[in-house]
Nucleic acid binder design. Structure first.
Lengths: 222, 222
DNA sequence: TCAAAAGTGTTGTGTGTACACCCATGT
DNA sequence: ACATGGGTGTACACACAACACTTTTGA
């Protein structure tokens, strides 16, 4: 029997904070790449579903739970890990930055959110992986309600639009944005206004709590 | 050190034959699923790129080479293989059904093309994998020149349209189809006419030999 | 001359895009 | 009263969808 590769899962977890798209990184406590930042992940157990492994690793390494996850791509370059052959099945995750407190595990000396638009030096091929994940997110935003993973249950149209703008890194026209979103019928008004310093805004929710693709294409070129 | 899963690659290879979309299957010579049909694939070697493994397995098991391949998805259900934990990284492949001769390897008692629209009973979770692959193909046909993997270098517009129709399983309007294809500027006329029994047809080629996505969306609802 | 596939335009409908002003509130 | 973000409509250009007849060839 020939030798087997090791198999890991790694997770690119996005969230929105302020006007920025953030990625969750952990600081490695042990070699290789000791003290470098990396995306969270770890070995798949022998009897564990791949997505369960991703959920478990996220929880263990960073204390983050309750996340939308989807499989991204499998990276298997023979030399991507100096310790030997490691094939990694990568996931994209989305959360509304919220209730949980980040907490570094025993494997990590630190955990933190970093801007997806200005990343530190990263371990392994993790930079490529994050770029791949960002492409996926940008792609799917155009034909699915995937943003719901990044927003709270209730939100205003301006918040929704800001989410699109941050992810696409592009300004959108307010009137056209609203017209399209309504035409897609993916959100609905709920009673109540969001109060801020200025005029209160109508509150909305997604019609569905599940992430799925539209029947109708939506490519915002506003 | 905990026990490691095994890692395989499997390939869903499509081709067009007559008016049908075909998938390449091999008949298993050994248990588990002895005498069932399955998609070609096998174990990844310890120092081998994933896509090289896919190319190698295709060649070894079926004698098919010179194929467009892209990674599809990784299936890792702990019980998907009765022998133990096997994680499989699946690929979609496209070929123009052409020069090579199918040839069963030592592991397979037979190799054959089957209609993607009426498959036999398949080993493991291979039915799910093929359905997944077909969805990918249908999706990508709308925003990439991926059909070029299924066609010869030179072809007529009717052949191109038939390829779309077979994959989408839907009739398209000839005039609208031509208008859109020309607008996309992905094919160019070449000198020469294709002669058949009837009126000869203009011959075309793809502008690019590489598969890539359009700048412009193309969703044929003709 | 007939059978079969190749080739060709127009019109109505809907969607994308550009663009500017008034409204409601808290300070 | 003013600063700030919330909220609204219209016109033009372009893409999509529906639709039928003529042309070219081999047999």
């Amino acid at each position: 029997m020939e030798q087997k590769p090791s198999v890991t899962v790694d997770i690119v977890l996005f969230t929105l904070m302020g006007d920025d798209l953030k990625v969750l990184l952990v600081k490695r406590k042990y070699p290789p790449f000791k003290d470098s930042w990396a995306i969270p992940g770890g070995f798949v157990k022998i009897d564990e579903q791949l997505d369960e492994a991703a959920i478990r690793e996220l929880k263990e390494e960073t204390n983050v739970s309750n996340v939308y996850l989807e499989q991204l791509y499998t990276f298997g370059e023979p030399k991507r890990d100096p310790r030997g052959r490691v094939i990694t099945i990568c996931y994209v995750g989305l959360v509304h930055h919220e209730n949980f407190k980040l907490k570094a595990s025993t494997d990590a000396s630190d955990v933190s959110w970093y801007s997806a638009y200005s990343l530190p030096k990263l371990a392994f091929d993790h930079k490529d992986i994050i770029e791949f994940a960002l492409k996926r997110l940008r792609g799917k935003i155009g034909y699915s309600n995937i943003v719901l993973g990044l927003l709270p249950e209730e939100f205003t149209l301006s918040e929704l639009q800001r989410a699109y703008e941050i992810i696409l890194n592009k300004q959108l026209d307010k009137r056209n944005f609203r017209k399209k979103i309504f035409a897609l019928e993916i959100i609905k008004e709920v009673a109540g206004k969001m109060k801020g310093k200025f005029r209160p805004a109508q509150v909305y929710r997604f019609v569905s709590k599940e992430i799925g693709t539209f029947k109708v294409e939506f490519r915002p070129n506003f």
